[in-house]
Amino acid sequence: MAAPMELFCWSGGWGLPSVDLDSLAVLTYARFTGAPLKVHKISNPWRSPSGTLPALRTSNGEVISVPHKIITHLRKEKYNADYDLSARQGADTLAFMSLLEEKLLPVLVHTFWIDTKNYVEVTRKWYAEAMPFPLNFFLPGRMQRQYMERLELLSGEHMPEDEEELEKEPQGCWPGMGLYREARECLTLLSQRLGSQKFFFGDAPASLDAFVFSYLALLLQAKLPSGKLQAHLRGLHNLCAYCTHILSLYFPWDGAEVPPPRQTPAGPETEEEPYRRQNQILSVLAGLAAMVGYALLSGIVSIQRATPARTPGTRALGMAEEEEEE
């Protein structure tokens, strides 16, 4: 019997099964198709077989870490949400996917990772609280720099750090000007295209729905202190109902509802408790060692030792000790 496919993705928050755009899209597509995945929701990308999230380990042991390639592999395994689409609907899927990546993705990246208020009070706060120590000290900042680089590639130049500054950019001074206006127009177009339908192509979800839902739900659910685009989305009631419908239908315990708390027996600690405490102590010691090592390597802390007078016979030993310290 072949090993089950395993999906590693960012864990959930804000009422969503995952707080990461790519992880949410892959999770949603898998739920739409009923793909038999063993899902690992984690907050440490180093526990992923690729070192990134999301990542799929196939039944053959191959590791795929690009969302579109993960979905392509699921299609090859006969879990295809687009099987019944016509040629016209397939063309519409490609057109709307291009629209999402060009008009909506840059603004979502800016909203969650560049806008100062949102990043400090929402994005970084979640990742810092979810990640294990000591990753929570430096990994959110590294992720922000990666998203900044990604956004500069999309827009061509550095973007202002606040939504208000972006809105005030005068005409013609910056290649990305009007990006929020274009994102609002994109949301309005999606609302018009959906209309009163359950999904974009009728009563059954397709791959386009997985991606649209991941974009909209992330923007809709987070409590953003700086959220003009979020306010525009909340005014498009059919898109809000669309997200609520998918959450309640496909993620009843992960998103729309909260599962009942697991009851733990009162009394003496269980057999697992000593091991859990041991792991916590080891994690703390490892974190302290990592911080001390970083301080020594970066020069924040240095150790001065008095060098004793050397005789000619001990010079070779002294050189060996210095190389080992380096």
Rank of each mutant, 00 (worst) to 15 (best):
M1R: 14
R310T: 10
L56W: 08
G178K: 07
R145W: 06
L53H: 02
G156C: 01
W174G: 00
N279W: 12
L56E: 11
H232T: 13
L190A: 00
N136H: 13
A91K: 14
M177A: 14
H237T: 08
A130W: 00
R181N: 10
K41I: 02
Q144A: 01
D92N: 11
G195M: 01
A266T: 07
E77C: 15
L317N: 03
V284R: 07
L282M: 06
G34L: 04
G141A: 14
C243I: 06
E257C: 11
E152N: 07
P4N: 13
A130R: 14
H73R: 12
H232E: 15
E102N: 07
V284I: 07
G172N: 02
R142H: 11
L282R: 11
A231L: 08
E169T: 12
L179Q: 10
G176Y: 04
I42L: 13
R305Q: 12
V107P: 06
I114E: 05
Q89R: 10
T93L: 13
L236R: 03
Q278P: 00
G299D: 15
V301D: 03
M159K: 09
R305G: 02
G61C: 08
G255P: 09
E271Y: 12
A91V: 09
F138N: 03
P312I: 03
E165Q: 09
L224C: 07
D84Y: 09
I70E: 06
Q280G: 09
R31A: 15
S59M: 11
P260D: 12
E271W: 10
R262F: 03
Y147H: 14
D209E: 04
E185D: 04
Y275S: 01
M97K: 10
F138Y: 15
V292F: 02
E273Y: 13
L135S: 05
L7C: 00
G267D: 04
L166C: 13
P252W: 14
A266E: 15
L135N: 02
N80W: 14
M143T: 01
M131V: 04
R315H: 11
T311Q: 12
D84H: 13
F137T: 03
P265W: 02
P252L: 14
V292W: 03
E121T: 03
Q230T: 00
P132Y: 05
E163F: 12
G313I: 00
E273W: 10
W14I: 05
A295Y: 13
K41L: 12
G61N: 09
V109A: 09
D254G: 15
L282P: 00
F199R: 03
T270V: 04
G12S: 08
L297A: 15
M291D: 03
Q221F: 09
L74K: 00
L99S: 08
T311F: 15
L239R: 04
G178R: 00
Y180P: 12
S65M: 11
V258H: 07
N136P: 01
H73P: 13
E163H: 04
C9P: 00
K125A: 08
D82C: 07
G15W: 09
L7Q: 05
L53V: 00
T188S: 06
M291E: 11
F137I: 01
E161A: 11
L296V: 13
F8C: 02
G13L: 08
S283P: 02
